[in-house]
């Protein structure tokens, strides 16, 4: 491969990686605080994508980027209420119960979507979908560039929130020391719900950034969640830096392997790099023992 093609491959991989980072950040936040894998992650992403799809359709005709604040806030609310009303209530304080509940939620959501929206893939035809921006020798579709930039911006804002606000500090405190948190007067159940809400809000934002260049069907969340699971483990469970590095690495690996071995065989690149990194660092890139 010529250097130009490799460069273009890396750029395109990074662009795709932005969304992976966003989806994985939500997953890793929920894991870090609640100590559970949110099996409903993919299904909730899919529901958010349908929300973007229907907002775009008449009568509203809302552009996905304009819908972003609305869908993100709606997703937060949905996550918060879901935790307060269903997950927290049914878990009886046991982490393994939460795991099963999120798995159950995912099955219900997938099938309700299949029933309501059928299994057809849907896309939105935004006018700017075919616009390209050239970055040196690489040609990048405008929506992908926007999705990358916006994902990085959202992650930076989330990082500021976690490090600068009392709520953010409380979330980090609850992640490692629940008893201590209760004794300084932190409402731990509320922090659980807020964390779950933020994790789902990341999906809302991701859905808005995805829809201009991707399709939605009842199973389209799984595409990203499998990659997000890989990203989270690769980067180190519960680590934000890990989600960022992991998501971008996976995007680039996927893109380069696709260039070298073709779309189908190139998919092998992700699990290969995954296994290789875990062999060398069993706790993931940024994970601790």
């Amino acid at each position: 491969m010529s250097p130009d093609i490799i460069f273009a491959g890396v750029v395109n991989g990074l662009m795709a990686g932005g969304i992976y980072v966003l989806v994985a950040t939500g997953l890793t936040l929920i894991y870090g605080v609640l100590h559970i894998i949110n099996f409903a992650h993919g299904s909730l992403l899919m529901l958010a994508m349908y929300a973007v799809f229907f907002l775009f359709r008449p009568p509203l005709g809302l552009d996905p980027y304009l819908a972003l604040p609305l869908v993100t806030a709606g997703a937060f609310l949905m996550g918060y209420v879901l935790y307060r009303g269903v997950i927290g209530r049914l878990s009886h304080g046991r982490d393994e119960n939460i795991l099963l509940i999120t798995l159950g939620l995912s099955i219900v959501a997938d099938n309700v979507a299949l029933f309501l929206f059928t299994g057809d893939t849907q896309t939105i035809g935004v006018a700017y979908a075919g616009n390209y921006i050239s970055l040196g020798p690489a040609l990048v579709p405008l929506p992908k560039l926007i999705s990358f930039g916006a994902s990085m911006l959202i992650c930076a804002l989330l990082g500021l929130f976690m490090s600068q606000t009392d709520m953010g500090k409380a979330i980090r405190a609850v992640a490692k020391e629940r008893q201590g948190a209760r004794l300084v007067g932190i409402d731990v159940e509320n922090i659980f719900a807020v964390s779950y809400g933020i994790g789902i809000a990341c999906l809302g934002a991701a859905a808005c950034l995805l829809m201009p260049f991707f399709y939605v069907s009842p199973s389209s969340g799984h595409v990203f969640v499998l990659i997000a699971f890989t990203t989270v483990v690769l980067g180190g469970m519960g680590s934000f830096g890990g989600a960022l590095a992991g998501g971008l690495i996976i995007g680039v690996v996927e893109s380069l392997a696709g260039l070298q071995f073709g779309e189908q065989l190139g998919q092998l690149g992700i699990p290969l790099v995954f296994i290789l990194i875990l062999l060398l660092r069993p706790t993931g890139l940024f994970g601790r023992q």
Partner: peptide, 29 residues
């Protein structure tokens, strides 16, 4: 806690992943 009855627990229970300053700040959460 809001009424001013504060416990310093056995085993300290500080937040290991937060800085000393952040731990103190959360004391006044």
């Amino acid at each position: 806690v809001a009424r001013g009855l504060i416990q310093v627990p056995e085993g300290r229970r500080v937040f290991p992943n937060l800085s000393v300053r952040e731990n103190l700040e959360l004391g006044s959460y």
